[in-house]
Computed example of a mutant assay.
Amino acid sequence: MSTQFEVVVDVDRPIEDVFAYLADGRNDPEFSPRVLAMEKSPDGDTHVGTVFHSTVKDAGMRSQRDFEIYELTAPTRMRWHEVSHNSITAEEGGYDLEPTSDGGTRVRLFNVLEGHGVGKVLLPLAGSAARRDAPAFGRRIKKAVEASA
């Protein structure tokens, strides 16, 4: 059983800048309040096989989540999947970027969430909450990327 959420937002920054910012998952705490900390291994540029280790807080509980980049096509496409074992995981997620006619970038973010064990029962609630927050999440991405200039 899985559920998906997505958001599309236009960012007033060139596609190369947006891609570079989003490809460095260590920026996630700037636009995702649930992410308390983010580390990257190995150091250096993000590439296929890079793993981002995060500490997140969901529903008042802290957990560790590890996401591996499995596809990276600069400056238009990034895909990840969660390699940690939690009750609800992001089986697949990603960014799709395309330039806009005014020199900005259209960003599509999505995550496919999957429940495991008790997470199967919680998945509809988690998916609903993620979909409700998606527009605000998009606005936070836009604000953070534009402020990074």
Rank of each mutant, 00 (worst) to 15 (best):
T76F: 08
F110C: 03
V112N: 11
R79K: 08
Y21W: 09
S54I: 02
L113E: 03
L22P: 03
I69T: 05
M1F: 11
W80T: 11
T105W: 10
V35S: 10
G93I: 01
A134K: 09
V118R: 12
G103K: 04
A136N: 15
S84K: 04
L72D: 01
F31D: 09
K120I: 04
V8E: 15
V18M: 07
P42K: 01
V83Q: 07
E6Q: 13
R140C: 09
R62D: 13
R131V: 07
M61V: 15
D28S: 15
V56W: 04
F67L: 15
V11T: 06
A59N: 14
R140D: 11
L122H: 02
L22N: 03
Y21E: 08
H81E: 08
R139W: 11
V83I: 15
D24I: 07
E71I: 00
A90K: 04
F19P: 05
M78Q: 05
Y70G: 00
K57G: 04
R77H: 12
V107K: 06
G104P: 05
R106K: 13
V8D: 11
D96T: 14
A136S: 15
E91L: 08
L125F: 13
R77T: 05
S32T: 15
Y95D: 04
V7E: 09
A20Q: 13
L109K: 12
S2M: 10
D28I: 15
H116A: 03
P42L: 03
F52E: 02
G115R: 02
E92H: 05
A136V: 13
L113N: 05
A144S: 14
G49T: 07
E91F: 06
A74T: 14
R62Y: 09
Q4L: 14
E82Q: 13
H47G: 12
L109T: 07
S87A: 12
S63Q: 07
P29M: 11
L109F: 13
S54M: 10
V11D: 05
I88H: 00
V7N: 05
E6H: 13
F31N: 08
T55Y: 01
A144K: 09
V83L: 04
P99Y: 09
T3V: 13
R13V: 09
R77G: 00
I15K: 09
